[in-house]
Amino acid sequence: MNTATQVSPTTRAAAISASGLRKSYGDKVVLDGIDLRIPEGTIFALLGPNGAGKTTTVEILSTLITADSGQARIAGHDVTSDADSVRRRIGVTGQFAAVDGLLTAEENLLLMADLHHLSKREGRRRAAELLERFELTEAARKNVATFSGGMRRKLDLAMTLVGRPRIIFLDEPTTGLDPRSRRVMWELIRNLVTDQGVTIFLTTQYLDEADQLADRIAVLDHGKLVAEGTADELKRTIPGGHVRLRFADEAHLATAAGFFGTAARDDESLTLRIPGDGTLADLRAVLDVLDSTGIQAESLTVHTPDLDDVFLTLTGRQNAPTHPNPQKESAR
């Protein structure tokens, strides 16, 4: 951790700020007034279903398109009036791999080095270093057309890093990747922030990705931000936390139900759901009751609301992005 990260995130200078961003295509309102403030050296995740306006937000902030109204500043530079200064500070890895499929991995990186006006020597050094860091050295001389999705994505990110951007936009960086490649990408992204203190603006439709990576998360739905905060803050805003006790038979269940007044009882699965916030004190209270009454519980699980719950509650939709296990329970 460098010294910058010691400062509280809220007092740090804003790497990205936006107010009242609006964008429509014809009658279709894609962004309906977006306000953002993302401090330097943090990871910000913009979470939302397909078509929520995530990519449009990235396109505006990365100078690809202009907003109909509103303002956005990147490292203090206006994205419309001072686009070139913005471009010099950002790196963008889009939803679809922006690599040159007719070149090799190394040539792609050298192309970026040339476009960043690095000297030949510096360019070669930088390319070699990135190939090494992204474990692409072996494939360096291979044509990108032969690369797997995960390798293309890694190269894509490596190309973004050639110019040492201070602010990086990642538009759905792991969409379509297998679980292992996703973890590799996550690790690379996390290291960028811890090692180099860059700011990352990430869009994702995966709740666990936002949960894993982001310091702050904003939920975008129908072009509006419907919630913003840390993963924990968001989870706290919605109900659903509980301790679940399972018993051997109905007799035990009935006895226990008598002692936990607020619990919801499920005779079929022989469980009791005791509402709570999942804190240690909460859990201890449950255990104390069990101890003092001598009731034997077969198992105990703690359920904290995860971002899926948040997402479903906030966007009011059941067709939220799939999660392998929406009612994720964590045994403690």
């Binding site: 100078t63 690809l64 471009r87 790196g91 679809f96 922006a98 040159d100 476009l115």
Partner: peptide, 13 residues
Amino acid sequence: TEGIINRFRTMSI
């Protein structure tokens, strides 16, 4: 039609 043009467009070139 490929992604690379968008990369070029976000670069200071």
